[in-house]
């Protein structure tokens, strides 16, 4: 077993009396793609900032590449690439210039930075935007430029905080493709997300975080197996009837969950479950059989949905 690149033990971050991160422990292996999944305010970004050596912990121990961020902040940061939740590109500079100035922060020679900047503009599919003003780039392009910037020092670990939040589906897929390539190249990825499809696409292993604590840990498929059924039947009877009907559907599938607009029935075979529903004399307005997702895992663990 190679030594983990990140080791967090009983990590705590408090703001006055409020614990944003409350006793979190996890390891990340080199080359692994690791995700923190949870709703807004779960403590994911705070954890990321501590790992990024820009926020000091209140308690616990943290080691990045074997170094303590309290003591070796610049050393750790020299090995990281950081894609923050909110873009902080310099809008007074042109697209490629952003990479040039950023590369210098790592003490890299100008020639090397210029060469990498060209390669990364191509990697980010921004070849034709080299001289564009940052302000004129679309949201997806800005994110890709931010990722390119984060790669300028050829980092050991890439930290991505909500990398695709606010992007349209097409832009998300382009970004996922770029991240997947990095993963294939062996870059360690640590990302936070509240999109379960993103976590399923990109992560080898996930911790589900809520209210500053880890609720569960495993690969996406492990988590789904452990906390959900293979399939889910979604039925709608109108928002006023769902509660009443749900009581009469008890016993169908492993369990059911009543949401304001629909009932979720967890079963290994969704079609059979739908048959059982109609057998009991209920005809849903709409019905849908789908595979279980991390959303279901989260709902099971916290009783709440991820995107509220």
């Amino acid at each position: 077993m190679p030594e983990p690149v990140i080791e967090a033990r009983n990590l705590v971050k408090k703001y006055k009396d409020f614990a944003a991160v409350d006793d979190i422990s996890f390891d990340v292996a080199p080359g692994e793609s690791f995700g923190l999944l949870g709703p807004n305010g779960a403590g994911k970004s705070t954890t990321m900032r501590m790992v990024g050596a820009v926020s000091s912990r209140t308690a616990g121990s943290l080691s990045i590449l074997g170094l303590d961020p309290d003591e070796y902040g610049p050393e750790i940061r020299s090995q990281l690439g950081v894609v923050p939740q909110a873009d902080n590109l310099d809008e007074e500079l042109r697209a490629r210039e952003n990479l040039l100035v950023y590369g210098r922060y790592f003490g890299l020679p100008r020639r090397l930075v210029a060469q990498r900047a060209d390669e990364l503009m191509a990697f980010a599919q921004l070849d034709d935007k080299v001289k564009a003003k940052v302000d004129d780039l679309s949201g997806g392009m800005k994110r890709r430029l931010t990722i390119a910037r984060a790669l300028i020092n050829d980092p050991r670990i890439l930290l991505l905080d909500e990398p695709t939040t606010g992007l349209d589906p097409q832009a998300r897929h382009v970004l996922w493709d770029r991240l997947f390539r990095l993963k294939e190249q062996g870059t360690t990825l640590v990302l936070t997300t509240h999109y379960m499809d993103e976590a399923e696409q990109l992560c080898d292993r996930i911790v589900v975080v809520d209210e500053g604590r880890i609720m569960a840990e495993g690969s996406p498929s492990q988590l789904i197996r452990q906390y959900s059924s293979r399939e889910v039947l979604e039925v709608r009877f109108g928002s006023q009837n769902n509660e009443v009907v749900a009581r009469e559907l008890e016993g169908i599938g492993d369990r059911n969950e009543v949401l304001p607009d629909r009932i979720l029935i967890y079963a290994s075979n969704g079609e059979e479950a739908l048959g059982a529903v109609t057998e009991r004399g209920h005809t849903p307005i709409t019905s849908l059989v789908r595979r279980s997702s991390l959303e279901d895992v989260f709902l099971r663990l916290t009783g709440r949905s991820l995107i509220e």
Binding site: G66, P74, I76, Q79, Y105, G107, R156
Partner: peptide
């Protein structure tokens, strides 16, 4: 460990010249 030693070397220039960058 080697990656930590590598980080120590990589941060030398920024520790000294960061303000100039």
């Amino acid at each position: 460990r080697p990656d930590a030693a590598h980080a120590l070397i990589a941060a030398r220039a920024p520790r000294r010249w960061g303000a100039w960058y």
